[in-house]
């Protein structure tokens, strides 16, 4: 059996007396697409931040590529793409400059071509030389998705990828997620509603009262067998 891309072992996160996550057992294999649903403040974003190594769990362990996320070496960090609530973009640089900068950070072969290509993919080619400061929330969101996927990460963590996107934008992002899953990346995203992406088998989890549970969704039950094999259970 292949090693899981994401594995958590009775992960818990508390902020003082506030319990955000507890007993989280998550296992995702390469090529798995999973969504986490749950209300505001349920701990979805916290889980993604822990998996990206930006926060340390209070208890338990989070492993990504078999490595403890508290001490991720550079070569593992470069295989993670995180799109968080904050866009990580520089408002005073243009869309193109932002992407080129991140492409350079990830030492991609041709930053300019790469930036250009991604601007086209997320439908921002026309505003490539506008400063991000002038972008609408939805445009910034598209650029932020492009930024996270730039280096073709093996683990893609997306926090509310569909938030503030118009219909076209949502289609584009859905297609990108499908593409990522198809090339064998592991995608873990959070969302409010239950997502549908054509042609991708999605596992749906729900965080409720700090615990991560497989969501009992009709379709999920039907496709259960296939998902289980993807998740490595």
């Amino acid at each position: 059996m292949p090693a899981p891309v994401v594995e958590t072992r009775s992960l818990a996160k508390t902020y003082g007396p506030a319990v955000v996550l507890r007993e989280v057992q998550l296992r995702l294999l390469a090529g798995a697409g999973a969504f986490i649903i749950g209300g505001n403040g349920a701990g979805k974003s916290t889980l993604l931040r822990i998996l990206a190594g930006l926060e340390a769990p209070s208890d338990g362990q989070a492993l990504v590529f078999g490595q403890d996320t508290r001490r991720l070496a550079a070569r593992y960090r470069r295989r993670i793409g995180l799109m968080a609530h904050q866009s990580f973009l520089y408002p005073n640089l243009t869309a193109r400059e932002n992407l080129e900068f991140y492409a350079e950070l990830y030492s991609l072969a041709d930053p300019r071509a790469c930036a250009h290509q991604w601007l086209g993919r997320v439908g921002l080619a026309e505003v490539a030389d506008t400063r991000v400061r002038a972008f609408s929330r939805g445009m910034e969101q598209r650029l932020s998705v492009a930024r996270a996927m730039l280096a073709e990460p093996a683990l893609l963590l997306l926090d509310e990828p569909f938030a503030s996107l118009d219909h076209d934008g949502a289609e584009i992002v859905a297609a990108l997620i499908r593409g990522a899953v198809e090339r064998g990346a592991c995608v873990l995203a959070t969302t409010h509603g239950i997502p549908e992406i054509d042609g991708v088998e999605l596992a749906v989890f729900e965080i409720s009262r700090g615990r991560l549970m497989q969501h009992a969704h009709k379709e999920e039950v039907r496709r259960g067998g296939r998902i289980r094999s993807l998740l490595g259970r």
Binding site: A52, G53, L54, A74, R75, R77, R78, I80, L82, A84, Q86, S87, F88, L89, Y90, P91, Y102, L105, Y106, S107, R147
Partner: peptide
């Protein structure tokens, strides 16, 4: 925009 996190996350 929390860009410092983006830098920390990078290799």
């Amino acid at each position: 925009n929390g860009a410092i996190r983006g830098l920390l996350l990078s290799p």
